[in-house]
Simulated assay, not measured.
Amino acid sequence: MNTNHVLIKVVLFVNVLCINSFVENRKVNSSYEELKHEQIIDNSPVVGVWNFLMPNADAPYKKGRIFISEKNGIYDVVISLKTGSLNGQDIKVEENRINFNINMEGIERTSFVLEVEGDKMIGECYSENRSSEVLAKRTLPVE
């Protein structure tokens, strides 16, 4: 009877160890999947700080920076110029493409259609009265 009693305790102990190990392993796998998902989101090719040039734009809009960030799947765009900043609206991102609008001088709606290739972004901006090619280069690494 003692041998059976000891055997039962050993079997129960081993089962408890296996269950705990299984539960911990699931937690680790779950955390890994969450981290992997966050890395996929963080690796959006459009996110970053971009120095841009618009050769056909008026002088105040010719050069500046585009700041593109993302949090919880929502993108934010700010264009920084010597004369101030403009906030992006109606932002749409699909893989390596970003489209957004800004209001220049408060009233003129300007649309941007840009595509990222590595650390370069090319595309165009256009409004009712003008259009320009947009050339940009990433200045800071994606965080």
Score class of each variant (00 low, 15 high):
M1S: 14
M1R: 14
N4C: 07
V6A: 00
K9E: 13
F13A: 15
I19E: 02
N20W: 13
F22K: 13
E24P: 02
N29K: 15
S31A: 10
S31Y: 10
E34R: 08
E34N: 07
L35N: 11
K36G: 03
K36H: 10
E38H: 07
I40P: 04
I40R: 11
N43K: 08
N43H: 09
V46R: 00
N51D: 14
L53A: 11
L53R: 14
P60I: 04
K62E: 09
R65A: 11
S69Y: 01
N72H: 06
Y75H: 04
D76F: 07
V78K: 09
S80G: 06
K82M: 11
T83L: 02
G84N: 01
S85L: 05
L86T: 01
G88M: 03
Q89E: 10
I91N: 03
E94L: 15
E94N: 15
E94R: 12
R97W: 06
I98L: 06
I102F: 06
I102T: 06
G106P: 02
G106I: 02
I107S: 09
I107D: 06
I107H: 07
E108W: 10
E108H: 12
S111V: 04
V113H: 12
E115K: 15
E115N: 13
G118R: 08
D119G: 05
D119F: 06
I122W: 07
S127F: 02
R130T: 10
S131K: 10
S131W: 03
L135W: 02
K137Y: 12
R138S: 01
T139I: 11
V142I: 10
E143R: 09
